[in-house]
Design a protein around this nucleic acid. Structure first.
Lengths: 327, 327
DNA sequence: CTGAAAGCGCTAACAA
DNA sequence: TTGTTAGCGCTTTCAG
């Protein structure tokens, strides 16, 4: 089953490759209907499929959009990719996924791989806040949009959740419920802007109305929370889990310990997905919309690819606050 | 920032393109260490990145693995892709995702798109059980492995969960708990082999020891369950949700109705993710391991791409049964 | 051990 | 309206 090429088509249709190429690129303006039909028929008959490689090589136009997520096993990624894929497809682009496995070096490798694929554009959920860590990207001149996390200063158009506002409101609700101790259960804070911002929203809202303790973990292990509880046997704290995975880890641990919420401790966090409503009395959560973020980012990227120059500004996608019975 | 090509490198190193190409393809066998170092240095200095397109065009070897999932917004996909990506990377391949949006035609489009990208191989979660629906795939001769779902007859090596066994055991546990009515809440049954098999396992285990009712939905809506309950006000059934999304939809509905489980009705199902333990008394579930399925499939694919001829047999990845308090 | 040369499948001036 | 021609950046015989 030798692959059928543009030459085969040209020959079978009795025209030149150039004409077939024009047909493929829909330059019908001044092509005899006759020729056009002939080519159409031959393509149909031979089931000819133009090669992307060849076309890309010549035209420098791959119709590929690279997507580098922080951690592909995270549900956030699925949703983000779903949104991106949808819009990319609508623009005639194919997406190519890279995974950073939560590691800056791996992220760089992924980006470079995609750059070698000559992607027309790139959507990145950046591991680092420092634009300098992406110098090679800048150099390549590839149109880029960042998602979910900010770099400081902003260097690329960036689409994120507007979660400061929601998190702030969540913190206020926690205070209103009378909690004296707020534990922020979060991944090592230095890495990503989102994490920092979430913690900050809590700190800002709380001021000195309650004690806020940052409990950092490197591996999603709620041990830090357990330790704190041991050291404060009489406290009745609320724990704020800084992302969906931490929230789940925390809840599993709570269940495992035979504790109940909100009796033994209050819980709240981020709901990457829609399961938080189901647990116990329903977990109070900030809900994000990664699908929309992906869609927005891809629209922006399409514009940049199309030649528009967009400023490096932040676009925010609203997040919701769902207050339930968990604190 | 004009792209640096192999010619630039050749010139700068004072050698021919051919030699640089040999270097790139690690044909060091008979290359003077001197030349080798020279080239290495120049590549470093110029930050040269070989173009995949060009190499692919000539060598007919893209190092691309196409992955077509049934529905990219499903968590199952994330896990599958995670496993595939990991192994593909280890083999020096890049994955390219296609989405079928639960639709056979869209799946075909996705596959054809990937075929045009000249992927070296394909991993597909098939929408259809009928190999004839994939004639164009067969024709292309592209190495292919199917995952998650079977075609009948088997035409490609296929990696699936071994969930018949686990589902059968689950059904037995349900019977042992004394349930008289078993409701199988499932997507329109005709489409996918997995769904069929899950229902079948229940039917097989039950025989005539309980009434089994198939409740089919086209849109994840538990209305069919609600209707059944209205019609059988005195029954105390157990509902088996045929996949993770249905299970979640069911549980949300139950919570919404103010019902509790297992008091008002028993629940069990498939846990695509790890949240089922958290809900209520813990939902009894069959747990699958899509990551492993992805890994296995990719290993097989690598072998086929490598020239090995594998028989069209089914490889099963064990699934677990987690009995908890939900019935 | 290295180079020359042909060509993968397609596109895009430039001619006709 | 269509064909001719010259590559895109790389790989790979075949010579040397």
């Amino acid at each position: 089953m030798a692959k059928v090429t543009i030459s085969d088509v040209a020959q079978a249709a009795g025209v030149s490759k150039a004409t077939v190429s024009r047909y493929l690129n829909k330059h019908f303006e001044r092509m005899s209907p006759n020729t056009r039909q002939k080519i159409a028929k031959v393509i149909e008959d031979l089931n000819y499929q133009p090669s992307f490689q060849a076309s890309a090589l010549k035209s420098n136009w791959t119709h590929l959009v690279g997507v580098v997520v922080a951690d592909i096993s995270n549900i956030y990624s699925t949703l983000l990719i779903t949104g991106i894929n949808e819009v990319a497809k609508a623009h005639g682009n194919q997406i190519m996924i890279g995974d950073a496995s939560d590691d800056l070096n791996q992220q760089q490798e992924s980006i470079e791989l995609l750059l070698r694929q000559n992607v027309d554009g790139l959507i990145i959920q950046p591991m680092s806040q420092d634009p300098h860590d992406y110098a090679y990207l800048r150099q390549s001149g590839t149109p880029t949009v960042m998602v979910d996390r900010l770099t400081k200063p902003l260097f690329w158009p960036t689409v994120t959740s507007d979660d400061y506002a929601s998190t702030y409101k969540l913190a206020q609700a926690v205070l209103a419920a009378g909690y004296q101790d707020i534990l922020i259960f979060i991944n090592k804070i230095s890495v990503a802007s989102t994490r920092q911002m979430r913690a900050q929203a809590f700190l800002d809202a709380t001021q000195d109305k309650a004690r806020v303790t940052l409990l950092e973990t490197a591996n999603d292990d709620p041990k830090v929370v357990a330790d704190w509880l041991v050291q404060h046997p009489n406290a009745h704290p609320v724990v704020f889990a800084g992302n969906g995975r931490l929230l789940m880890a925390l809840l599993l641990w709570i269940k495992d310990q035979g504790l109940t919420c909100p009796e033994d401790l209050g819980v709240c966090g981020y709901d990457d997905w829609r399961w938080a409503a189901l647990v116990g009395p329903g977990i109070s959560c900030v809900t994000q919309y990664p699908i929309q973020i992906g869609q927005q980012a891809t629209e922006l990227l399409a514009q940049i690819i199309g030649g528009k120059r967009l400023p490096a500004t932040q676009v925010k996608v609203a997040a919701d606050l769902n207050l339930r019975g968990s604190f």
